[in-house]
Design a binder for these strands. Structure first.
Lengths: 345, 345
DNA sequence: TCCGGATGTGAGATCGATCCCAGGTCATCT
DNA sequence: AGATGACCTGGGATCGATCTCACATCCGGA
């Protein structure tokens, strides 16, 4: 590990009284090796507790069996779940996962990626912090670095990706609210220029248009991606005279903020305000009432991203594979049917 | 990253028309280098976008600037938080964090550690899966591998650690319940032989003894560490005639299971059953009522573990530093004062 | 003028695994 | 008998960064 890092191939060879080359052949099973010799080498290796030095191996071969995983925030259960699935899938193939969060910051993302490249990392699973500022990512793709984008896409970059149809998801949420008679539908969003937020916002606007509801700028509140800021932002939204009868929150942090803000304002869900959150998470089923959400296939994303990456590692010239999962509206108890509406569920 | 991994020191030296040795001196700032030469080299490096190859560096120096982080389960918000803090603290010092979950399995832990050792990893932050089965960990410590245990200790192993006083935490929870008049206090625990669970159980038993309550084996239920199993286990506990009036859950997964089970059994909190959970988590403040918990100083653990590790990397012969944080009982609304009891809060 | 130290520079070795190639020993086949 | 080829083994080079050591210079002081 660091101190006496154990026996080297040279040591094994010495004990087995052969050359390094022969020892390597015996242990890695290629080329010609005599029966007795092979046995002696394997015994020597066993006896010395020999383990190949992955660093030396990497220098020679140019490939360190490490994959970089760069989420926006590892504390977000969404990414934690993906991290776990990626770890499991890649370890099965003898890769390790190096996790380095971008903390939703493009500069940090750049630094992290530079560090990973210097490590001869074999590939990347990345949730880009920004849709626009993508020069460094384009560069990687251009150089042929195996890379799978998750959760978010980047403009003009052709590479493997696993995302979700955010626009349709938000659209479906609004449709559901409209069907229940809501027309003043507020929106709480993260202010960062993240792909998912933009798509979800687009879905919201499209739905309003489709259902003949005028878009009201004042119904949309942007805020920093912390629960505290989300609480304050929700407060602003519901302080106005004609406040919304329903609220769509664009991610789980926003949902948590909204929940706390509404509670402390004495507004009941769904009595006073109906709520739909984007992204399902444990909390949503524990509140009273449980919250209706737009769920993403969280369990699929990490597994698939790892698989795509492994395939690309084996075959570099594959065309980009772009996967979009559909979301699912999980109806729980946080949406109320407004009076004068037929409850059609 | 993997394809054309960029310029090497050799290339830089060629452009600057010097030898590798001189280029290295110029870039790393040691030995004698002429002014003009140094400038030429730096310009050449700049122009070629030279980055040192960390793998080659690691082979030469025997040290790859990577730290292994081995949690029990990266999806547990407790570990996710620690992972984040460790990542931040170590990246500041140019280390990367390689995360590999043991999934609470000793065999997998062994494999993971072997993989990390083969990588020349510089150090480890580890939450051991088992208290007993510790041969592999002892071995590492004996070899002088820098290692910091978190959350859990291992028998007979003398190394740095950052843990929490679980026994006192559980004791305080029981004390609180007793003060509110409860005497039939159930316990829901993970069945795995994890250090924290054992300590918390000990605290529970000690408190019962201290308050003159007989320990009743049937009040303690063990289960696999999944929400589903915890639900079933809770069900068993409350199906008996004289079921507990209060429940202590030993980790957040158990707490979630208990919450769902009690709800579906139509038992209200705290009306029918009082509840205290070990480990605070977002959910606890969102339920109705919010849940009284034994909180750990989650924000401190990762930061401190990283710091201890960095210190040890610089100075190997430090004596083991053993840090125990105190827990904090956060009183919310899930404990009821039984009739005939003075409410002393 | 000559010498010692300060100053610059490069050749070569090293880290450990891997692989090419040359050299060797056999047995078999013509 | 000589040749062909299968089988086995080791020497040495390679990956890229770093460090030791030897070799140059050039200066001021003796």
């Amino acid at each position: 590990m660091s101190q006496q890092s154990g026996a080297t191939l040279e040591d094994v060879a010495a004990v087995a009284q052969v050359s390094r080359a022969t020892a390597a052949r015996a242990l890695n099973g290629y080329g010609y090796v005599g029966h007795g010799t092979a046995l002696r080498v394997r015994e020597a290796a066993e006896q010395l507790g020999y383990q190949t030095n992955r660093v030396a191996q990497a220098l020679r071969s140019g490939r360190l069996r490490i994959i970089g995983f760069v989420p926006g925030d590892i504390q977000n259960p969404f990414f934690a779940r993906i991290a776990h699935d990626v770890d499991v899938a890649l370890r099965r193939r003898n890769y390790n996962v190096l996790i380095a969060s971008s903390e939703e910051n493009t500069d940090q993302e750049r630094q992290v990626l530079a560090g990973l490249r210097a490590l001869n990392t074999q590939g990347l699973i990345l949730a880009p912090a920004s849709t626009e500022d993508n020069h460094h990512i384009l560069e990687l793709v251009r150089e042929g670095v195996p890379i799978v984008l998750i959760d978010r896409l980047v403009k003009d970059v052709a590479c493997d990706s696993v995302t979700v149809d955010n626009e349709a998801g938000a659209w479906a949420a609004v449709e559901h609210l409209v069907a229940k008679g809501h027309r003043r539908i507020g929106l709480l969003r993260d202010e960062a220029p993240i792909f998912t937020t933009q798509e979800r916002l687009a879905g919201y606007r499209k739905a309003l248009t489709d259902f003949g509801i005028a878009f009201d700028e004042r119904s949309v509140v942007s805020t920093k991606p912390t629960v505290g800021d989300a609480i304050a932002a929700t407060g602003r939204l519901f302080k106005r005279r004609t406040s919304p009868t329903a609220l769509l929150t664009l991610d789980s942090v926003m949902t948590q903020g909204a929940l706390l803000a509404l509670r402390s304002a004495g507004l009941s869900i769904p009595g006073d305000v109906s709520l739909i959150g984007f992204d399902d998470f444990a909390l949503a089923t524990f509140t009273d009432p449980p919250i209706t959400v737009v769920a993403q296939p969280t369990a699929e994303i990490g597994r698939l991203a790892a698989q795509l990456l492994l395939e690309r590692l084996e075959q570099r010239d594959l065309p980009p594979r772009i996967v979009r999962f559909q979301t699912e509206l999980i109806i729980r108890g946080s949406v109320r049917c407004l009076p004068g509406q037929m409850n059609r569920d």
